[in-house]
Deep mutational scan, measured.
Amino acid sequence: MKGKVVSYLAAKKYGFIQGDDGESYFLHFSELLDKKDEGKLVKGSMVHFDPTPTPKGLAAKAISLPLE
C-alpha cells in the first residue's frame, strides 16, 4: 500500500503514516527495509508498506521509500 508520513519522531524511532485507504498506521524504524532511508522519513514523504493489524491497532510493516 502507498501512504504519506504524517509524523516521525527520530529520537524515539516511531511515527505515523496515513494510508491511501485513509487509515492511520504506526510506523517504527525497525520496519524500514533500508535503514539509510531514515533521514527521508519526514512529514509528507511518500512510502510503500504492508498494512498489518496488531493487537494495538494498525501497523506499517516492510516500509520502503519510492525510487527517486
Rank of each mutant, 00 (worst) to 15 (best):
K35W: 09
D21H: 04
V6L: 13
G19T: 04
V5K: 02
D37F: 08
F49E: 01
D20I: 10
L67Y: 13
A62H: 14
T52Y: 15
K36C: 12
G19M: 01
F49L: 01
D50P: 00
G3Q: 00
D37C: 10
L9R: 12
G44H: 05
K2A: 11
F49H: 01
D34Y: 08
M1Q: 06
D21W: 03
K40C: 10
S64D: 05
A59C: 11
K43S: 10
L67R: 13
G39S: 14
L67H: 12
L41N: 01
A11C: 12
A59W: 14
L58S: 05
L32Q: 00
G22K: 05
P55W: 09
G15N: 00
M1C: 08
Q18D: 09
V47T: 04
S24V: 15
E38Y: 05
P66N: 13
G15W: 04
K35N: 07
T54G: 09
Y8S: 02
G3P: 00
K43E: 08
K43H: 10
P51S: 07
K43Y: 13
E23N: 15
F16G: 01
K61N: 06
A59R: 15
L65K: 04
S7K: 14
P51C: 05
Q18N: 08
M46Q: 12
L27H: 01
K4V: 14
G39T: 13
T54F: 05
V42L: 11
P55D: 10
H28F: 07
K12Y: 11
G15Q: 00
G39V: 14
A11I: 11
L33G: 04
I63M: 03
P51R: 07
G3M: 01
G15R: 00
K43I: 10
E68V: 12
M46H: 11
T52V: 14
K4G: 04
K43R: 11
F49N: 00
V5M: 04
K43D: 05
L58R: 09
L9W: 15
D20H: 08
E68K: 10
D37S: 09
T54V: 05
L27M: 12
Y14F: 10
T54K: 05
E23K: 15
A60Q: 01
K61D: 02
K35L: 07
G22C: 08
P66D: 15
L58P: 10
E38P: 03
H28R: 07
F16P: 00
A59L: 13
P55S: 11
P66Y: 15
A11P: 08
G57D: 01
L67N: 13
A11N: 11
V42W: 08
S45D: 03
S7Y: 15
E31G: 06
